[in-house]
Design a protein around this nucleic acid. Structure first.
Length: 261
DNA sequence: AGGACGCCCTGTTCGC
DNA sequence: TGCGAACAGGGCGTCC
């Protein structure tokens, strides 16, 4: 379930391990993941180039290269990005590999092929074309208020709407609502009374906390919902058995005591 | 406009 | 034991 924190971890991995190395070739094992290009097109765009920057917007990762463009990666719900040394094996379900001239590789692995691999002229152009909202990391309370104004409907689907803000999916919308003490069925309108500072703080805590934990549930702060978000899980704050309901077509886990309807 | 729903995809888990 | 249904969910399309 790569959402903003997971993709930020991949971004740092890309930045720390795959910049300024010449691309020797690109191998695509799952061409159906390519959108708007082909294995040959990817090769033409990337061969001989080097990645110069790793950027992220929402759940999209951009490997910007020195040929005035970017490789775009989206991870669907099961994708991972790893760097692999010359002598190591790429992971199972590797769908695309960028090979560098030094023998090292960048591997995109995804058991469920729900992600996408594409090329973009620029990060900004891609964001515009996809109608993505501002990145969810670092939004201030005033911006949240502006994004909520005139919005009808549920708060969970609003948080997950990539056109409103980019990066939050089912898992982290649950975490944010838990940290904010807001029931998943509440309307966006209810935020007007509560104020946006609380939501802003919850978003900051959930997203930054998860990134600091490298998006690994086992390393997350003790008061995070995420590690308990399963059958038989209990609220880390009050111990009440967690419940789930359907909201915005997704399973919304919450604490019935801490998140009042 | 926004919600409900189905589809894609495939490994895992559960029920009969 | 074994098979198949249900489930996980990001993103998109359709319908209401």
């Amino acid at each position: 379930m790569p959402e903003l924190p997971d993709v930020e971890v991949y971004r740092r991995r890309l930045e720390g391990g795959a910049l300024h190395r010449a691309v020797a070739g690109v191998h695509v094992a799952a061409p159906d993941l390519l959108q708007g290009t082909s294995p040959q097109g990817l090769g033409r765009a990337l061969n001989g180039r080097s990645f110069t920057a790793a950027r992220r917007h929402g759940k999209y990762l951009f490997a910007v290269h020195d040929g005035d463009g970017a490789l775009v990666l989206h991870f669907g719900m099961s994708g991972v990005l790893v760097t692999v040394s010359a002598k190591d094996e790429a992971p199972d379900y590797t769908r695309c590999v960028v090979e560098f001239t030094d023998g090292g590789r960048l591997a995109y692995s995804a058991p469920r092929k729900l992600g996408l691999i594409a090329l973009a002229g620029s990060v900004e152009e891609f964001i515009r074309d996809r109608d993505l909202g501002p990145d969810a990391l670092g939004l201030d309370a005033d911006t949240l208020e502006r994004l909520a104004s005139g919005r009808r409907g549920g708060i969970k689907s609003w948080l997950m709407d990539q056109g409103t803000m980019a990066g939050i999916g089912n898992v982290y919308s649950d975490e944010i609502l838990f940290q904010a003490g807001i029931h998943p069925r509440r309307a966006v309108k209810a935020l007007e009374q509560a104020g946006f500072e609380g939501l802003q703080g919850a978003m900051d805590k959930a997203l930054h906390g998860a990134i600091e934990a490298a998006a690994e549930p086992a390393r997350m702060p003790a008061d995070f919902l995420l590690p308990h978000r399963h059958d038989g899980g209990h609220c880390p704050s009050c111990g009440t058995a967690l419940e789930h309901l359907q909201a915005a077509g997704r399973t919304a886990w919450h604490c019935p005591r801490c998140q009042r309807d």
